[in-house]
Simulated scan of single mutants.
Amino acid sequence: MAHVILVMALLSYTVVTLLNLLGADMAGYQQVIALVSLAAILALQLRHSAPGANRAPLWQRCLTLTAQALLTYLPFFVFQAEWGAMAGFLAGSLLLLLPARVGWSLYGVVGASLSVPAALEGRSVLVVVYLCQSTLLTGLVTYGLSRLSELVKEVHSARDELTHMAVTEERLRFARDLHDLLGFSLSAITLKSELIHRLIPQHPQRAREEVQDVLSVARDALADVRRVARGFQDMSLEQEVSSARSVLSAADIGTTVRVSLGSVSTQTSSVLAAVLREAVTNVLRHSKADNCNIEAIQLDGNVHLLVANDGAAPDHHEHSVHGGSGLMNLEARVRAIGGEVKAGRVDGTRFRLRVVVPAEQE
């Protein structure tokens, strides 16, 4: 609609000039010259008013502006002041295609130049002022409608891009949540199933107890999938600490836990629970740990979460052919609530993950 309004306005200005010329006493060849010149100027103006015209190479802009200037000023020798309205198109094109300082300067020059033919014809001061003012006004209208059309197009393009980004972000969120929630559960099920396999021959009673734990973890995994599908992601840090202790113990990894928390917002607790779940999953999958230390301490308005384990040998690799993106997911979650993550090897064979986040979210 903005483009249609622009085209109709340019056509209207052109038709007004044509009617003024036809109302004057002109010879046949003059009418032909008027029609050809008006058509050429209109075509050039539509080109200059098109979105992105100001991004064309400088030499192209200068060439078309020069052509428009010649078509604007040469007909004055034939039609005199009756041709004055066409100078407004040139004024608008200068604003559209040239840098602001140069464009506005030349815009003023074009407006003032209309006083010359009117004065040479002996027109009154009021007519001179009218021609200069109408030229400047036409230039502003041409510039404003052209920019409006371009901005509307950019807004529509930006809206489409934002929609695409929102869909992409939602896909990333779903993938991140699925990874964070199910990675731990599936690792726990695998670990406990291997433990059951070893216990069945000589400790059947203990194996039955572990089967119950596997069923419990599987039910929790199913609930997690449903929570992801609903977009509901609240998790409890204290519950996750308890689950981590149980899984690490089943893997014969000595676990030291220290938790000292006060008032913690639901969002902070959910993020830290996801961090702890991913950290324990990495301990199980990416190390040969014998000991793991978990600390969650609230200090000076922040919650400090530390997960450290040994057995992070450089030659130990995950057996799965699929790569992971857990640490990147955690960094995204933590930074979203104003926290920071530090992770890396310590003393060669120890790996430490430290997270600091605000205890309360605004």
Results as ranks from 00 to 15, higher is better:
residue 179 H to K: 13
residue 203 H to T: 04
residue 235 M to R: 15
residue 200 I to F: 08
residue 187 S to V: 10
residue 163 T to F: 08
residue 201 P to V: 09
residue 245 R to V: 02
residue 209 E to F: 03
residue 236 S to L: 12
residue 186 L to N: 14
residue 228 V to M: 06
residue 244 A to P: 01
residue 201 P to A: 06
residue 209 E to L: 10
residue 216 S to D: 04
residue 205 Q to I: 14
residue 226 R to N: 09
residue 188 A to T: 14
residue 159 R to S: 11
residue 148 L to C: 02
residue 146 S to L: 03
residue 242 S to P: 00
residue 235 M to I: 07
residue 235 M to L: 12
residue 198 R to P: 03
residue 203 H to M: 05
residue 226 R to C: 02
residue 214 V to G: 03
residue 188 A to P: 09
residue 191 L to D: 06
residue 180 D to I: 11
residue 184 F to Y: 14
residue 243 S to I: 04
residue 235 M to A: 14
residue 220 D to T: 12
residue 181 L to E: 11
residue 242 S to I: 10
residue 151 L to R: 12
residue 207 A to P: 03
residue 191 L to G: 14
residue 210 E to M: 13
residue 226 R to F: 08
residue 235 M to G: 04
residue 154 E to V: 12
residue 177 D to A: 15
residue 176 R to H: 09
residue 224 D to N: 09
residue 242 S to C: 02
residue 157 S to N: 07
residue 150 E to Q: 04
residue 214 V to P: 04
residue 154 E to G: 02
residue 201 P to S: 07
residue 218 A to L: 11
residue 220 D to E: 13
residue 168 T to A: 15
residue 175 A to F: 08
residue 197 H to D: 13
residue 156 H to R: 13
residue 214 V to A: 05
residue 222 L to F: 10
residue 157 S to I: 09
residue 176 R to W: 07
residue 168 T to G: 05
residue 244 A to F: 00
residue 199 L to H: 12
residue 213 D to G: 00
residue 219 R to D: 15
residue 164 H to P: 00
residue 195 L to Q: 15
residue 190 T to Q: 11
residue 243 S to R: 14
residue 166 A to C: 03
residue 208 R to D: 11
residue 183 G to Y: 07
residue 147 R to E: 11
residue 216 S to M: 01
residue 179 H to Y: 15
residue 224 D to T: 00
residue 204 P to Y: 05
residue 211 V to F: 10
residue 197 H to M: 12
residue 202 Q to M: 06
residue 151 L to C: 03
residue 219 R to N: 13
residue 169 E to N: 11
residue 231 G to T: 01
residue 181 L to A: 13
residue 216 S to Q: 03
residue 192 K to Y: 09
residue 241 V to E: 06
residue 162 L to Y: 01
residue 232 F to D: 15
residue 223 A to P: 06
residue 229 A to M: 08
residue 162 L to C: 01
residue 226 R to A: 08
residue 228 V to F: 04
residue 229 A to P: 02
residue 148 L to I: 01
residue 160 D to K: 12
residue 164 H to Q: 07
residue 147 R to D: 07
residue 168 T to P: 02
residue 183 G to T: 10
residue 207 A to N: 01
residue 161 E to R: 12
